[in-house]
Design a binder for these strands. Structure first.
Length: 587
DNA sequence: ACGGATGCAACG
DNA sequence: TCGTTGCAT
């Protein structure tokens, strides 16, 4: 007897909302003339008319499929409208669809815990809303439930609902309809209302329900699915999927809906098939720069709009060697701490590439070609809203300018800076930071007083570009401080890097990253001594311990859980990790 | 020249 | 933790 993953506790009402042929709908909204027409969205069109990524129902009825090329679609359906995905920086740009997806998510999230599963798919936990409806305005007769549910099935798409209706009706009106069924019916009603709202506010239609309609069993609706035993479904779809289907058809899903409206990572990439393969590092750099530019823009707006910071930059590539056709060796992925700023990201991505290429080639002298490149920003964390208060305590030299930013919902990146790191804007303007003066009579917050530069240090600081507008922990610590760090190091004021043996267990990750960066650099520019500032990233570890210690205890606590929310609080205390402030030497 | 771009989870 | 793989839309 097969046993599935245990499905715990309470009945839940979980909806799966799917924007079908979403890209087409987005294009139809942009150009209403396309409505009701056979339409498909293609990526690129140079080669065989481009690849289809979404197909309207009208076009589907001609037999147009998503796996087709534009040329093929034309052949099958000569009247088809092919709309191209926007191209920016030489690559497909999906931002239009991403933000359209956000519009929908924003509406759905109003009724329950909402998980953005993909650009056009959402899971919604409607348990609470359904319970509430059952308490407040219970649809008392099964008949009434059915009428509501039927409406929801009909909405949006043209329906040949007669068969469907029969099943749903039979199900809802069956004599043993119980609490769970009513709850589910309420869920259906809520989803129906949501779909109306989505339609009204975005002009998009969506369908809600089960996504796994492979039709092997003639399954079209929940009602159909209910007629199968759990065992039969397991047999057909596998133990886990079968159970999942059986349960979800009854509104029971053990899988929690995650409360997450935003993606967990941002990536952008491009393939270079066949003759387009990249064969020298100049062309790789060119494309990498383009990809990094887009990535930088995206994480920057994520920071500005959502107050989230990405920690890790990863580079993926696909490669082959010139003379070996079926070499199974793969180009290794490489990652490093993510530093904000387009230039930094480009620089780091190229280093990751070079490092990966080095490993890939294993010191062979063969030529190579790259057939795909991608960069990804991951490990994204919220900056807790309270953190903006931290910024009041730590103000850099340009604190006066920062006062003039009441509502910086958007902080544009200044392209003239090559080390831009922005923190969340200051929203609350409650307390004034106390200040002190340095030897030049300039005012600094007490917190930063320990870091208050001498005039010589300040001269160095001024070589660095000024960040206008926002004064932040990031700017001050990550940019300004690194220069001071260099200076102090050369003045012998701080200790030299530790040897690898002396470092604590808690330092290993940091060591790894720093060492990897250094290794990369020395691989590429052998003989060039890596500068410590290159290892700087925005992280708690970057903060001078002296600065942290000066913070009020509650702020210290906040910082501890900030960038890397501690899963096991303080067994490996981050405080000691701050010693990585002095990056360990490479072994 | 594989449907591409993207995102997720699981695994070692 | 990182890097790989596989899978999904």
């Amino acid at each position: 007897m097969p046993v599935a993953r245990p499905e715990p506790q309470e009945p839940r009402v979980i909806a799966h909302v799917d924007m079908d042929c979403f890209y087409v709908q987005v294009e139809q909204r942009r150009n209403p003339a396309l409505r009701g027409q056979p339409t498909a969205v293609v990526q690129y069109n140079d080669w065989k008319g481009g690849g289809l990524i979404a197909v309207s129902y009208e076009a589907r009825s001609f037999g147009v499929k998503r796996s087709m090329r534009g040329d093929e679609a034309k052949r099958v359906c000569p009247g088809i409208n092919l709309v191209q995905v926007p191209v920016a920086r030489g690559k497909a740009d999906l931002n239009l669809y991403r933000s359209a997806g956000s519009e929908v998510v924003a509406i759905l999230a109003s009724k329950g815990k909402c998980e953005r599963a993909s650009i056009d798919e959402v899971y919604l936990d409607l348990t609470d809303a359904a319970k509430q409806m059952l308490l407040q305005s219970p649809p008392d007769s099964p008949e009434e439930i059915f009428m509501e549910a039927a409406k929801s099935n009909i909405l949006g798409l043209p329906s040949d609902a007669s068969e469907k209706e029969k099943n749903v009706r039979a199900w809802l009106c069956r004599p043993d309809a119980d609490y769970e069924d009513k709850l589910l019916a309420c869920g259906a009603i809520i989803v129906a209302q949501l779909r109306v709202r989505v339609l009204e506010e975005t002009q998009f239609t969506c369908s809600a329900g089960i996504a796994h309609n492979k039709d092997d069993l003639g399954v079209e609706t929940i009602g159909d699915l209910l007629s199968f035993t759990e065992e039969k479904l397991q047999e057909q779809y596998g133990v886990n999927t079968g159970t999942w289907l059986w349960k979800i058809a009854r509104g029971i899903s053990g899988e929690e809906v995650e409360d997450r409206l935003l993606p967990k990572s941002h990536g952008c990439g491009k393939t270079f098939p066949g003759p387009k393969a990249l064969k020298n590092s100049a062309s790789v750099k060119g494309w990498l720069d383009q990809l990094c530019e887009e990535l930088s823009e995206r994480i920057q707006s994520d920071l500005n709009q959502n107050k989230r910071i990405a920690q890790t930059l990863t580079l993926h590539a696909r490669a082959s060697k010139a003379n070996e056709r079926d070499s199974t060796k793969k180009f290794p992925s490489k990652s490093c701490p993510l530093r904000y700023g387009t230039g930094k990201i480009q620089e780091d991505a190229m280093k990751l590439f070079e490092s990966g290429l080095h490993d890939f080639l294993e010191s062979q002298n063969t030529g190579w070609s790259i057939t795909s490149l991608s960069v990804t920003a991951s490990k994204i964390f919220d900056i807790p809203s309270g953190t903006s208060s931290i910024l009041r305590y730590i103000k850099g030299p340009s604190s006066a300018a920062s006062q003039a930013i009441p509502d910086s919902s958007s902080v544009p990146e200044d392209p003239s800076l090559d080390n831009n790191v922005y923190a969340t804007p200051i929203h609350e303007e409650k307390c004034e930071p106390s200040t002190s003066e340095n030897e030049d009579g300039e005012r600094y917050s007490d917190i930063s007083a320990k870091q208050c530069p001498t005039s010589e240090e300040k001269r160095i600081s001024k070589k660095l570009p000024e960040v206008k507008g926002t004064s932040s922990i990031l700017k001050f610590l990550s940019r300004g401080q690194s220069a001071l760090h260099e200076k102090r190091k050369s003045d012998g004021l701080i200790c030299s890097p530790q040897g690898p043996g002396s470092s604590s267990e808690a330092n290993k990750a940091e060591e790894h990253n720093v060492a990897a960066q250094r290794a990369d650099r020395s691989n590429i520019n052998s003989g060039t001594e890596p500068s410590a500032s290159n290892a700087w990233m925005f992280n708690v570890e970057d903060i001078d311990p002296a600065v942290v210690e000066e913070l009020p205890p509650e702020i210290q606590r906040e910082i501890q859980g900030w960038i890397r929310p501690s899963k096991q609080p303080s067994t490996k205390r981050r405080g000691s990790t701050i010693s990585s402030y002095f990056p360990p030497a490479r072994s």
